[in-house]
């Protein structure tokens, strides 16, 4: 069914724009048109369908599910729910405080916050349609696994010391009950608005990501990557993570870049380490989290995740090559 986007790109590139098939410009243009149409279509449809069935979990509900669970169950449950609960990163702070206020351990809360930006339904469908189910499965398992391990380590090292003191004093009111329009018309309106809002929020990341992907695809020869970031260069993985640290993108925006890198025969572990580094560790997210976490914990958090990404990169490269 998604071949239609390939055909559309074929037509637009070779017929409408009359570009010569063998050229770099044609390659890049084809990549750009196919990915732009496909990704925006999928993004809109998935968010619309999820919102229509109200399958979008509210963080307030998630808090209720995790509250009172033992730590053992808590990490896994929080990481899984982090993967299926969409929330805007600007809600990270109230969400963090709300979880702690319900008695949920810091590590379990962080498991939720680590997994959430990396894995979600939109990312799964788009990733699967572009790079296949195997890579998607590995990516999802890695994202959830890192949330669980990260949360566990944070509790083990008693990182709750590094939560800002005022956080512990906040008392949350009873969770507000909000009326929702359950009629068909109400659901369609709600789903339509959610899908529009999502597109408005992430379109720039997607365009930039596809632009970079198209540039890599069309203009950077595979030999370049083979030389500098191939499977036999042990420094490629840490380098990929380091490059990703200061960069920030929504997961949807990084997928086309990953697609182009994989097409240049970059090993899967290196690509996943890079994606996760871009998506999960970013200056804006850290500025937000600084409101509730002391600098020591932020430094630990960034260091831990970076090392974890490097290890995961090596592990996946060893497993899949």
């Amino acid at each position: 069914m998604l071949e239609i986007f390939t055909r559309l790109a074929d037509w637009a590139t070779y017929d409408a724009l009359a570009l010569d098939r063998a050229t770099k410009l044609a390659d890049a243009t084809h990549f750009f048109i196919e990915d732009t149409t496909k990704i925006f279509f999928l993004l809109f449809v998935i968010v619309f369908v999820m919102a229509f069935f109200r399958s979008m979990l509210a963080p307030e509900k998630v808090r209720g599910y995790i509250e009172g669970k033992s730590r053992g169950i808590g990490y896994g449950l929080a990481a899984l729910l982090g993967a299926v609960t969409p929330f805007c990163s600007c809600s990270s702070v109230p969400l963090f405080i709300g979880f702690l206020e319900a008695g949920i351990p810091v590590g379990v809360t962080m498991a939720f916050l680590i997994t959430s930006p990396m894995v979600n339904q939109v990312a799964v469908v788009i990733l699967a349609s572009i790079v296949g189910w195997q890579m998607t499965g590995v990516y999802v398992a890695t994202g959830i696994g890192l949330g669980i391990v990260g949360g566990f380590v944070i509790d083990r090292l008693h990182m709750e010391r590094y939560v800002e003191d005022y956080v512990w004093k906040i008392r949350m009111g009873e969770v507000a009950q909000i009326e929702v329009d359950e009629s068909l018309r109400g659901r369609v309106r709600y789903a339509w608005d959610q899908a529009n809002e999502m597109v408005r929020r992430v379109w720039l990341y997607i365009i930039v990501g596809i632009g970079i992907g198209a540039g890599l695809h069309g203009y950077v020869p595979a030999a370049f990557f083979a030389e500098y970031a191939g499977a036999d260069n042990p420094l490629a993985v840490p380098f990929a993570v380091l490059v990703g640290l200061p960069l920030y993108s929504n997961i949807t925006g990084i997928i086309p870049v990953a697609e182009a890198l994989l097409a240049k025969s970059l090993p899967i572990g290196t690509v996943i380490a890079f994606m996760m580094s871009v998506v999960a560790i970013s200056p804006p997210e850290f500025i937000i989290l600084r409101k509730v976490l002391k600098p020591q914990m932020l430094v630990f958090f960034a260091t831990f995740l970076s090392i974890a990404f490097v290890l995961v990169g090596y592990l996946l490269n060893a497993l899949f090559t």
Binding site: A58, P94, L95, I97
Partner: peptide
Amino acid sequence: DMAAILGYGVMSTPGVVMDGKVVHAGGIPQ
């Protein structure tokens, strides 16, 4: 103020309070 926001029982922002009652949470209202 985070204490005030959570005091209303809202964890996903933006939320809207009308005449003291929470009428919306999590996103721009329609």
